[in-house]
């Protein structure tokens, strides 16, 4: 059984302006799927549907075998982490420790277990030294890693990333790619950063104006210059002919 299953999903924020059209995606356990598309293609909306931040959709969405409906949201959210595009939206407590502990505490774990989970999550993203750091004193890269730790401390089976490499410098970006690759969870990564998608995802879904244009092996899609350009995207930098820029 697939961890994530979407069948014939349609969604519109307001009548007459449909954002997603007939979306069919199946994500097997442990796979990493890239979700690419131009601005406004519907990537973030699709991720929000999976965690029930939007529930008035048409069609079928199942996460870990449970339909995404109000009555199942608590279960689904316990097993599905969502890393926001903007880390400032994700981090709202005063210190890294408090923020990472927020999820486990809400699920009723004792302080001893919470502490263990927090330390494990911080170690996974290599920021255990920032445990007591105040959030407002952190750099963008550190905040992104702390955001991921807030999700990992809940030990989710699925993690959804919305533009994880946005505003990261090359070193932090490389570090993040390493972390993403070391995570065994099922992952969906929505991004414009096609080089990162190439480095982290086995399969990719290309969205354009709310429709799936193409899905398959990442390498096959990302080397198709014509397909990408037709949908307002460009080849990943590593696949571009550098001589044309010189």
């Amino acid at each position: 059984m697939a961890d994530i299953e979407l069948r014939g999903v349609n969604f519109s924020y307001q009548k007459g302006r449909q954002v997603l059209h007939d979306i069919n995606i199946s994500v097997e356990h442990g796979k990493t799927i890239g979700l690419i598309g131009a601005n406004g293609a519907g990537k973030s909306t699709l991720l929000k549907l999976l965690v029930g931040l939007i529930t008035d959709y048409e069609g079928i969405i199942e996460v870990l075998g449970q339909p995404v409906e109000k009555k199942n949201l608590s279960d689904i959210r316990k097993k599905t982490g969502y890393v926001f595009q903007d880390s400032d939206s994700q981090l709202f407590m005063s210190t890294v420790y408090e923020d990472v502990a927020f999820g486990p505490r809400n699920y009723g774990y004792s302080e001893e277990i919470v502490q263990k989970k927090v330390m494990e999550a911080l170690c996974k993203v290599h920021i255990e030294n920032l445990k007591d750091r105040q959030i407002y004193r952190m750099s963008g890269g550190q905040k992104k890693l702390a955001s991921i730790a807030t999700i990992l401390s809940m030990e989710p089976e699925i993690v959804l990333f919305d533009e994880p490499t946005i505003a990261l410098d090359p070193k932090n970006r490389r570090n993040l790619i390493g972390i993403l690759n070391s995570m065994p969870e099922t992952k969906i990564i929505a991004s414009h950063d096609l080089d990162m998608i190439l480095d982290t995802c086995e399969e990719t879904v290309l969205l354009s104006e709310g429709r799936i244009v193409c899905q398959g092996k990442t390498k096959d899609i990302l080397k198709n210059k014509e397909l990408l350009e037709k949908h307002d995207m460009e080849l990943p930098l590593c696949m571009q002919d550098r001589r044309t820029n010189e």
Partner: peptide, 15 residues
């Protein structure tokens, strides 16, 4: 922004 923060809280079990 407050809406996003609240979403983030809810996604981590805030009740």
């Amino acid at each position: 922004r407050a809406g996003e923060v609240y979403d983030s809280m809810q996604l981590r079990g805030f009740n």
